[in-house]
Each structure stands twice: as structure tokens, then as C-alpha cells.
């Protein structure tokens, strides 16, 4: 067994929390630039230019891209030959989030569901752990804002709904969300599994480098068709009209029950933040 100290995990989570919120990924910046070339509306082009400027200001002045620095969603791929020593894993992650959100001047957005009293330190983090082969630990930190999360949905279609039913559900979700989730968005879609697995697939699809297609040609084609329909809705950046409503559709797919066709749509705002580290 390889030993990894909880302190290393804490420090990694702290650094990733800050890094993810301040430095927008190069893939997202490239997608803004590509959209700027194609966008038909002058108002929309002006917004895309301002989003590029915003990313530059955040990086230069060391402040968050967006004030909603999210709940800290943390994916951990834990090698089965790793022994975490010094603190339990989830406490180490929460400890790292606590440090990162305090030291990085990030907004604490976690609260009690009814009294709305803020927990004060942005914990508990939303932690997903996968046990994988090997002796390494991969930590992915993906802060998720409330505006786009609120526009996300899970549904259980009948198998008869098929490919067209999934297409309509996804496109209509983006249409109904309109300007609310801060377009241009990235549309994460999970198809199959169970009720909760579909949602997790949708969320995980957002971790893929922006615009990289699904490896299966059948699903890559469905991603392209969905994106074309979404960008024909006219919603555009910030919902003020335009041809860039979404930058990409990412599908993650798995088999499901013979009675079911679960579909989840997890909408990601243009502040698509995730950073990772391998220990």
C-alpha cells in the first residue's frame, strides 16, 4: 500500500478551489473565441468580448471569474492501493474546501435548506469517490453555481420515447431555461443507468474538455444534432438573442433497465470551472 497523508489531500483541495475559481480553462476561452467568429448578433459579440475580458481581469487581479464560487463538487478517483493517513478522506476534503474558500476570498454559498442560515465555510462539499486500480489519487474540483444548477432536470422517459424523446427533452430544457443559466452554456446530458446515475453521468460529462465529442460515433452525432437545434433557438449569450446559446453538448451514456429511459440535463453556465490534480 502507498500512504498518502491527509495533509496532502487538504492542500490539493485548497489550491484547486482557488485555482478553479480564478483561472478559466483554456478550452473555455478558446470556445468563446471560436463563438465570436461565428456569432451573428452584434450585441452577442459584444457580450462574448466582455466574457473574454472578464476572464483576463480575474486572472490578472486574482479575483473570481464569477461571484458565485459555487458549492464545491469534488470527484475523487482513489487508487485501491492507497492508504489515506492522518484524517478520514471526506474530512480532509472538507477541510481543504474550508481553507480554500477562506484564504482565496471565495463566496461561501452553502446554507440550511429551510432557515437559509449559511454554514459559514462552504462545507459540506459534494464528494463523489470512485475506487480505481492503482496507487494514485486524482482529485477534480468543480465549483458549481446555483443559477445553472437550478435550471437542470432529471426525467424518466418511457423506452418508446427513444432518441427523439431524449432530443426533445434536452432541447426543451434549454429553451425553457432561456436566459437564466447564463448562456452560452454547456449542456451536460446523462442517458441511461438509474434515476441518480443519470444525474451523475450528466454532471461528469461537464468535466470533459469542452467540445470533445463522445467517443461513440452514434452519440457524437446526437451531440451535434442537439447543439444545432439548441443554437437555432435564438436565445444567444445572456439570452439577449443570438446564435451562440450553447458552446457544446456532452453526452454520457450507459445501459438502463428494460422498463426505463432515464435522462438528466445538467446545465453549466459559461463560467465552466474545473481543475484537477493527481497525487
Amino acid at each position: 500500500m502507498r500512504e498518502i497523508s491527509a495533509e496532502e489531500i487538504r492542500a490539493a483541495v485548497r489550491d484547486l478551489s482557488i485555482e478553479a475559481n480564478i483561472n478559466l480553462g483554456a478550452d473555455v476561452v478558446a470556445a468563446f473565441e471560436a463563438a465570436l467568429e461565428k456569432e451573428a448578433s452584434p450585441v452577442a459579440r459584444d457580450i462574448l468580448e466582455k466574457l473574454l475580458l472578464n476572464a483576463r481581469i480575474a486572472k490578472e487581479e486574482n479575483i473570481p471569474i464569477c461571484q458565485d464560487t459555487g458549492l464545491a463538487v469534488v470527484f475523487i478517483e482513489l487508487g485501491q492501493e492507497v492508504l489515506v493517513v492522518g484524517q478520514d478522506l471526506s474530512e480532509a476534503v472538507n477541510h481543504g474546501v474550508r481553507m480554500g474558500y477562506e484564504e482565496g476570498y471565495l463566496r461561501k454559498s452553502a446554507c440550511h435548506c429551510f432557515t437559509r442560515t449559511n454554514t459559514g465555510d462552504n462545507t459540506p462539499a459534494i464528494i463523489h469517490v470512485d475506487i480505481v486500480p492503482g496507487d494514485r489519487v486524482k482529485i477534480i474540483l468543480a465549483p458549481k453555481g446555483g443559477g445553472s444548477e437550478n435550471m437542470s432536470r432529471v426525467t424518466m422517459l418511457t423506452p418508446a420515447a427513444g432518441r427523439e424523446g431524449v432530443m426533445d427533452f434536452v432541447v426543451n430544457r434549454v429553451k425553457d431555461a432561456g436566459p437564466n443559466p447564463c448562456p452560452p452554456t454547456i449542456v451536460g446530458v446523462g442517458i441511461g443507468g438509474t434515476f441518480e446515475r443519470a444525474a451523475l453521468l450528466a454532471k461528469k460529462s461537464l468535466l470533459r474538455p469542452l467540445g470533445r465529442p463522445n467517443p461513440e460515433p452514434e452519440f457524437a452525432e446526437l451531440e451535434r444534432e442537439m447543439l444545432t437545434r439548441i443554437n437555432s433557438l435564438g436565445i444567444g449569450p445572456q439570452g439577449l438573442g443570438g446564435t451562440t446559446t450553447s458552446l457544446a453538448v456532452h453526452l454520457e451514456v450507459m445501459p438502463c433497465h428494460i422498463a426505463s429511459l432515464p435522462v438528466a440535463v445538467n446545465i453549466q453556465c459559461h463560467a465552466a470551472r474545473h481543475k484537477e490534480m493527481v497525487l
Binding site: 472578464n54 479575483i63 471569474i65 447564463c182
Partner: peptide, 13 residues
């Protein structure tokens, strides 16, 4: 009025 959502660093200026 709409401000640009997600442009928090820019608006702060």
C-alpha cells in the same frame, strides 16, 4: 436592467 451574468470580475471594476 440586465448586467452580464458571470462577468463578476469585470462588473466589480
Amino acid at each position: 436592467f440586465a448586467a452580464i451574468g458571470g462577468a463578476g470580475a469585470l462588473m466589480a471594476r
